[in-house]
Design a binder for these strands. Structure first.
Length: 278
DNA sequence: CTTACGGCCTGTACGC
DNA sequence: TGCGTACAGGCCGTAA
């Protein structure tokens, strides 16, 4: 699921369900995801009231009353399901790894087949310096992400603009889909050397990153194989992809007439139009 | 410092 | 049908 729009969609789904509720029990059905659950993970959460759900890049942050933050990353295949009011619900599946029981009798099930996700705890005041966050780039939808700041971050980078934008230190929250889409909107070749993106070109790219993320959030994210939303509803931004996963189709840009191609960059698929992305 | 690569896991789609 | 291979929305550690 999980680039910024999908994580934001999950955040919005969780917020009304957990805000003001108390964690009554935590079940871990295995000792680790991508990293082990830290010692005291369960005892650090039980009895805590959840005040709000935040997001930083692709991380979800469940902030508890005492300043404990439950830090969650969905990896490639992580998702949450809400089971209200102790409804019996189905038998836990083999990939249901964590169950958070909440005060009103409901529960929150974390499912993650590939187990590239993670959960850990961190004190709120130390979040900025936590290893997961200290090198994270700016939030792309905040004012700190500008053409000037982007071209500074790309300065002296010889790698492609595609791989630079995937680097969470340059900007937080982009993944393969939205990088492809933003570069297509900006008319920029994913093969361009990152440091050549400066001035008006960087400004345009910033605008395209913002635009595609905002539209994707409004659509509830993109649902490929997994459900993006906590309530099981599908996001529908995948229908608005201009390039991603559209190899062989005609480029949707007005008056372009080119064709979308799939190329490989450092082992990952990039989708682009040769004729309008330069 | 930067960049490239392999590895972590499982599921699915596709070719033979 | 069954099997093997490639690939998938992410990230980290290592090596060069």
């Amino acid at each position: 699921m999980p680039e910024l729009p999908e994580v934001e969609t999950v955040r919005r789904g969780l917020e009304p369900v957990v805000t003001g509720r108390t964690i009554s029990a935590v079940e871990l059905r295995r000792p680790d995801l991508r990293i082990p659950f830290p010692p005291g993970f369960c005892s650090g959460l039980v009895g805590r009231r959840m005040d709000r759900v935040g997001r930083r890049g692709k991380y979800l942050l469940v902030v508890c009353g005492d300043g404990t933050v439950l830090v969650i990353h969905l990896g490639m295949s992580g998702r949450f399901t809400i089971v209200p009011n102790d409804a019996p619900g189905p038998e836990p599946g083999p990939h249901d790894h964590v169950v958070l029981h909440i005060g009103d009798g409901g529960r929150l099930i974390y499912t993650d087949p590939r187990r590239f996700g993670l959960m850990t705890l961190a004190p709120l005041p130390e979040l900025e310096t936590h290893r997961f966050f200290k090198d994270l780039g700016p939030e792309p939808l905040n004012a700190g992400f500008t053409g000037a700041s982007l071209s500074r971050a790309l300065d002296r980078r010889r790698s492609s603009i595609k791989s630079a934008l995937l680097d969470q230190r340059v900007v937080a929250g982009l993944g393969n889909i939205y990088v492809c889409e933003a570069l297509h909107r900006a008319g920029l070749s994913p093969r361009r050397q990152a440091h050549t993106v400066t001035g008006p070109c960087a400004e345009r790219l910033v605008g395209c990153v913002r635009g595609v993320l905002a539209q994707a959030i409004a659509a509830g994210g993109s649902s490929l194989k997994d459900y993006a939303r906590v309530d099981g509803q599908l996001g529908y931004f995948q229908y608005a992809f201009a390039a991603y996963d559209r190899a062989g189709e005609v480029c949707p840009r007005e008056d372009c007439g080119g064709k979308i191609h799939r190329i490989l960059q450092h082992g990952r698929s990039t989708f682009m139009c040769d004729s309008c992305q330069r």
